[in-house]
């Protein structure tokens, strides 16, 4: 079969799935928050409000778009795209499942591509997400936006360090930058494949990583970029209509990617417990279930914890997380040294 066609189908499937998940998340966010507050949540559009994301999309498209006086128009219009793009690009290297065979056709592994330096790619592209936020905040010509953008950039830089250091520990264990290799190293066969997941070897790293993803995606309790009581809406205060929506799509895409990355790095990716040789669709389902839990966790935490103070955030990032992740990396290195290399 034509390799390009296969590639296009896979890209379309995964990318469509990502955007669809982002849309579903906007509904899930509201539904779960409502339930946690004894409410019902959106229930007017479609059965149980399922078509709410479509209604929102239509509304955003038809709303008037305002560009503030004195804003840097070019950058202002570019920023939302920059915010949404990196997350969508990162999804390319996530290994969702193994070899896919459908209708007698071989579609290869279920991921858009398997880069040798997948982990490096994720870190490199993920680091770009900051540009959307800071440019949007700066170009708006508004003090709230600027403060929101500055906070977001400071926060993302601080936590990216911990994030990278914890990933480094995982990479050190596997000895490979390819995410698929990392996944496969966690599922080498046998009934007790669940014990091969990195979460058992990197418990501290796992915890640090999960918390750092919250900070990376500007989610509660670290959503200083928006921080309504202080900054109105933070970096997107001046945005409206579809560009406003793009920031949100970007945020939800980033959440999805981070959830997928957590599953890949620490929970064995598509690895099914006690069934090492599971067919690809079972593995894919297992991946979705695991990622779904982390997506739920994002929402769950948001409606449970209050927002940190900014100095507490910085304190946590530089004085707690950075030393801990360095320690974690050191301990991993020492362990690898004593066990005779990975």
């Amino acid at each position: 079969m034509n390799e390009i066609l296969v590639w296009v189908i896979k890209t379309g499937f995964i990318f469509g799935g990502l955007v669809g998940t982002a849309a579903a998340m906007s509904l899930a966010e509201r539904k779960f928050s409502a339930w946690m507050q004894y409410r019902i949540g959106p229930n007017r559009v479609g059965p149980w409000g399922l078509l709410q994301p479509i209604a929102d999309g239509v509304k955003f498209m038809f709303k008037e778009e305002l560009i503030p006086d004195g804003a840097n128009k070019w950058v202002f219009q570019l920023a939302p795209l920059l915010a949404a793009m990196p997350a969508m690009m990162t999804i390319a290297v996530i290994p969702f499942a193994g070899r896919v065979e459908l209708f007698g056709q071989d579609f290869g592994n279920l991921s858009i591509t398997d880069l040798d330096i997948g982990a490096l790619y994720v870190l490199a592209i993920g680091g770009l997400a900051i540009y959307g936020v800071i440019l949007g905040g700066w170009a708006s010509n508004s003090k709230y936006s600027l403060l929101g953008g500055l906070r977001a950039s400071a926060q993302m830089i601080s936590y990216e360090l911990s994030l990278i250091l914890t990933i480094l520990a995982v990479i050190a264990m596997t000895g490979d930058l390819d995410l698929r290799a990392i996944v496969e190293a966690q599922n080498t066969g046998g009934v007790w494949n669940v014990l091969e997941w990195n979460i058992w070897y990197q418990p501290l790293g796992f915890m640090l990583f999960v918390v750092a993803t919250f900070a990376e995606t500007n989610r509660h309790p670290f959503d200083f970029a928006e921080c309504e009581p202080e900054l109105v809406g933070g970096f997107h205060t001046e945005y409206s209509a579809m560009r406003f929506a793009l920031f949100f799509i970007g945020e939800y895409c980033a959440m999805t990617v981070m959830a997928c990355l957590t599953v890949t790095l620490f929970l064995g990716g598509p690895s099914v417990p006690f069934w090492a040789a599971a067919p690809w669709f079972v593995g894919f389902a297992a991946f979705l279930v695991k990622a779904g839990f982390f997506l739920f966790l994002f929402i769950w935490v948001r409606w449970t914890l209050p927002r940190f103070r900014f100095d507490q955030l910085m304190h946590l990032g530089w004085k707690v997380f950075l030393p801990l992740s360095l320690l974690n990396l050191l301990a991993t290195g020492v362990a690898i040294l004593f066990r005779g290399g990975a």
């Binding site: 779960f32 409502a34 339930w35 946690m36 507050q37 004894y38 409410r39 019902i40 229930n43």
Partner: peptide
């Protein structure tokens, strides 16, 4: 609390 009784009036 997600499974508590709803207070919303439609």
């Amino acid at each position: 609390k997600m499974f508590a009784k709803r207070v919303t009036r439609q």
